[in-house]
């Protein structure tokens, strides 16, 4: 069913060759070093990777919310519905945030202001972007709360964050993100701080929200089981680059890049008992001093001479599957 869906779907976001660096006293950290991907309408793209691989910086770059002045987008295009976000003025970009793109952060405890009611915080983007006033605001707030399946929304909107549990708070954060019906929602590890059963609720909820609103989601995480449950397609990031992009089933059942397959093999399985886990030797490289050629070659079990010397180009294997590896032909 998804095959024909892909062909006539609108592309909501197209990112081309994005480079983002942090300039510090120690030098330039190439946090995102030439990343390209796209997200279709109503699709969830997972960005998976280990800490420091650049997945969060990618998300922040899309919103142009990098910590100033250290972080800077050096090159690339971020095209949302035909507009290149990198060409917008600061003021124009502010209008996009919350309205066209919004973001959910990891920690529900710190992403809400403790001094304002839930209703007030959800109303904020509505007042900013849609110039709504009075009862219309409250209606919209209640519908946002209802969208996120928050029980008794009329009462909840008068609550302060500390009166809600962690799971409820994260739903409120979701409601803020969805209040203006954005085209694209970036979720950065939104369930990492939650317990297993609450996480399951949240994921089920977000699939439901997506069906109702057709929003596109970029889901940033390190957790493969969440990726499997949530995402249509997956981009695997390593040391600032995407190494493989493919449909979720392909990533799990037929991974092509040695890093992807090694990662999947190294995660313990719930459905069988392993005696030993496959383990990848070494550690991810420093972003200050990346290896030449393919950045995974020092840890790669299948490394060849060419891997050390030249960076591998993109190889397309059928629709929606691309790999950056010399081993693929």
């Amino acid at each position: 069913m998804s095959e024909n869906k892909n062909n006539d779907k609108n592309i909501v976001l197209q990112v081309e060759d994005l480079h983002t660096s942090f300039f510090t006293r120690k030098g330039e950290y190439k946090a995102v070093d030439g990343v390209s991907f796209h997200v279709d309408e109503g699709e969830t793209l997972g960005i998976v990777g280990e800490s420091g691989c650049g997945k969060t910086v990618t998300g922040l770059s899309l919103l142009r919310l990098l910590p100033e002045p250290a972080g800077r987008i050096k090159a690339g295009k971020i095209i949302l519905d035909g507009t290149n976000l990198l060409e917008l003025s600061k003021k124009e970009m502010r209008k996009m945030r919350g309205k066209e793109i919004s973001m959910i952060l990891q920690d529900p405890m710190t992403s809400l202001n403790p001094l304002y009611t839930v209703g007030n915080q959800i109303a904020e983007p509505l007042r900013q972007h849609q110039q709504l006033v009075g009862d219309r605001v409250e209606e919209e707030v209640i519908s946002a709360l209802r969208l996120l399946n928050i029980p008794a929304p009329e009462q909840r909107l008068r609550d302060y964050p500390h009166q809600l549990s962690g799971g409820m708070r994260q739903r409120v954060v979701g409601a803020i993100g969805m209040s203006c019906n954005p085209r694209l929602l970036i979720a950065d590890e939104p369930t990492t701080a939650l317990d297993a059963t609450i996480q399951a609720q949240y994921i089920a909820l977000f699939k439901d929200v997506q069906k109702k609103t057709n929003v596109s989601i970029i889901y940033i995480t390190h957790d493969f089981s969440v990726v499997y449950q949530m995402c249509h397609r997956v981009a695997v990031m390593y040391a600032g680059k995407i190494l493989e992009t493919a449909r979720t089933e392909v990533i799990f059942n037929n991974p092509t890049h040695p890093y992807t397959s090694a990662l999947i093999k190294s995660v313990p399985r719930l459905d069988r008992k392993d005696d030993r886990l496959y383990s990848i030797k070494g550690h991810p490289p420093s972003l200050l001093n990346l290896p030449s050629g393919c950045r995974f070659y020092p840890r790669c079990p299948e490394a060849k001479n060419i891997c050390r010397d030249k960076e591998p180009p993109e190889t397309k294997i059928g629709d929606n599957h691309s790999v950056y590896c010399w081993g693929v032909n």
């Binding site: 030098g27 070494g282 550690h283 420093s286 200050l288």
Partner: peptide, 11 residues
């Protein structure tokens, strides 16, 4: 280990 070596070099 790489990261550590990196650091001492810089210092």
């Amino acid at each position: 280990m790489n990261a550590v070596l990196e650091k001492t070099k810089q210092e």
